[in-house]
């Protein structure tokens, strides 16, 4: 049975999505954009116009991140947010940033899909005198004057903390680790891999036997894990670059008739609700948080810059780490 609300909603969705899909070919196909694309220009009274280009909505973490930014940069708080979803494509993101420059927004903030290839478009923003703030992911530009600051977690540190926990708690005997990498070429994938390798280098017991990309998604995490299970009969630990891939791995391990968290240990990064739930159930063994609630920090930075202040070129957010007990305790009060 189709409820009335559902039908209305689907209808509205169809219309909205059609309009979007036809009008802005490729720039944003998802109905996620919360702002009116038609109202352009940075001249909107006292409001500070901020163009934000999000990576996509590939994971629960990203959804929480998007929500935090949209909930903080509101009209009530003095912001006019222009939000776009790049659907994990750099070209979409560059296009979005160009359109923000053309609209003459006051600030541009974005989470780069990949690390490289940003110099040209950031140069354009600099020429247009629009300050750029990187959130959550870094770019590899030599020229640090292209952006004001990079706010986000230290991915190398996250990988290192996971690596240390594995080395200390599991690496007391020889263990085989398989790694589910994030999107190839993205900063978290590179850094989390690096941090983990650095931390476990000194422990000869920890051996990474395979590493493959799961694209930060649950489905691909599961597919790749199934392949690993076929290829390597003696896996002890799964290191997933995010919770979603870890959750996919749980499905694969269960399908293979093994017990996740016992037969094969799982460690991951992020700390989204589904991940934390699995941790409290003992299916995941250890999670290092990567705080997605960047909205308030971003708002503070913009306000500071607006009033003529300066900010540090690198602002690291505070991340917690959880084991089963800590997760169970934290779950009821988690915002995401």
């Amino acid at each position: 049975m189709v409820s009335r609300t559902f039908r209305t909603r689907a209808m509205a969705a169809t219309v909205a999505a059609l309009a979007l899909g036809l009008a802005a070919c490729g720039s944003s196909g998802s109905g996620d954009s919360s702002t009116d694309a038609a109202s352009g220009g940075g001249d909107s009274g006292d409001l500070i116009t901020v163009g934000f280009s999000q990576v996509g909505a590939e994971s629960g973490w990203r959804a929480a991140n998007t929500k935090s930014i949209q909930d903080t940069l509101t009209k009530d708080n003095g912001f006019d947010l222009k939000f776009s979803d790049a659907q994990q494509k750099q070209e979409n993101q560059i296009q979005a940033i160009r359109s923000y420059i053309a609209q003459g927004v006051d600030y541009i903030a974005f989470s780069p899909v990949v690390e490289s290839g940003w110099d040209a478009v950031l140069e354009e923003a600099k020429q247009a005198n629009i300050p750029v703030i990187l959130t959550d992911r870094a770019v590899d530009s030599e020229d640090t004057s292209l952006y004001k600051t990079f706010i986000g977690s230290d991915f190398v540190e996250e990988g290192k903390r996971i690596g240390e926990w594995v080395s200390d708690n599991l690496g007391t005997e020889p263990i085989n680790v398989v790694e589910l990498q994030g999107t190839t070429g993205s900063a978290p994938a590179i850094d989390r891999k690096q941090g983990f390798e650095d931390a476990t280098k000194g422990n000869p017991n920890v051996k990474i036997i395979a590493s493959q990309t799961g694209n930060f998604t649950r489905a691909e995490g599961k597919t790749v894990m199934e392949g690993f299970l076929q290829a390597y009969p003696d896996i002890d630990v799964v290191y997933a670059h995010n919770d979603d891939m870890g959750l996919g791995a749980i499905e694969a391990i269960e399908a293979a008739g093994k017990v996740p968290g016992k037969d094969i240990k799982i460690v991951s990064i992020d700390g989204v609700k589904d991940g934390m739930t699995a941790l409290s159930e003992g299916k995941i063994n250890y999670i290092v948080e990567c705080n997605p609630l960047l909205g308030p920090d971003l708002a503070d930075i913009i306000k500071t810059l607006q009033s003529g202040g300066t900010v540090e070129p690198r602002i690291v957010t505070h991340d917690d780490a959880f084991d089963q007990a800590a997760a169970t305790a934290a779950l009821p009060t988690r915002q995401y």
Partner: peptide, 12 residues
């Protein structure tokens, strides 16, 4: 049309 719009509908 639905290739681009369909995911938007699913997201909604």
């Amino acid at each position: 049309i639905f290739m681009t719009a369909g995911r938007g509908i699913a997201m909604l």
